[in-house]
Amino acid sequence: MDNTSIKRKRGLRFYLRIYFKIISQDIKSKMSYRADFITTFFGMIALNLSGFIAFWVIFKNFPQINGWDYREMLFLYAFSLIALVPAEFFFDNNWNLQQAIVTGDFIKYCFKPLNIFFYYMSEVFGIRGLGQLVFGVGTLIYAWVGLALPVSFLIIVKLLIALFSASLFMIALRNLSAATCFWIINGLHVMNITNKFRDYARYPITIFGGVFRVIFTFVIPIAFMAYYPSLELLDTKQPVFLTYLTPIYGIIFFWLSYKVWMKGAMNYSGTGS
């Protein structure tokens, strides 16, 4: 009897309630450093702007890449930006994992009657994703109008599903690279390397040949971060089998990253202080 009541308490509602309690503390503390908030916001805008300038410079010289013209590529670009936002918002604490492990602070997460992964991730809200979201949505609307894509209830639902699935890959890749911190000292380097991959998610996977196309599709799945899901949304492109595999593979990949992360967390033995 008691057992079932505990189980019921641990439903989605329980976790949501806890989540908002923890996260609101983080947002409060972030708001008290206003200068940091402002510079972070503008930093993110500058980061996106420079990415956009690079993109624009390439298309000033080359009218198309592998049959993708400027507007279509812009769509891919905006899509990949938005798909990254959930990883920035909700899984940003991965960046602090190495520090937490080395200093021994991580041990505190092991002693709470909560899922370690959940508790750890809920502690930080990556406000820097906000700048990215604004920039991404603006660019997407611009590309959408430029391509004269229809606006209907169905396509918006499709877009949201596509974005959600793509974001799972971003999150999973970040979890996996952060999880390396549990086993090696320099996991932060792995994070920096994989973080650069997202810049290349905005190009069609068809540019890669042979074995690298397989690697960038299944092992380091940057192809799913924008290319495959976008095929369904663009009128001018034909979706392929992998397009429809995106949500399923996204969930599998995310689950895998969660398992690996948890395995690392379970192995953690603290620093002894």
Binding site: Y33, A35, D36, I38, T39, T40, F41, F42, G43, M44, A46, L47, S50, G51, I53, A54, V57, I58, K60, N61, R128
Partner: peptide, 26 residues
């Protein structure tokens, strides 16, 4: 007293206008 934003601005400007991202000839 805040570093992330400033550092990323510096990094992107140096990278882009330095020519490390795209050759300046383009």
């Amino acid at each position: 007293q805040s570093v992330w934003g400033l550092n990323i601005v510096k990094e992107t400007i140096v990278m882009l206008f330095g020519g490390a991202a795209i050759p300046l000839a383009f």
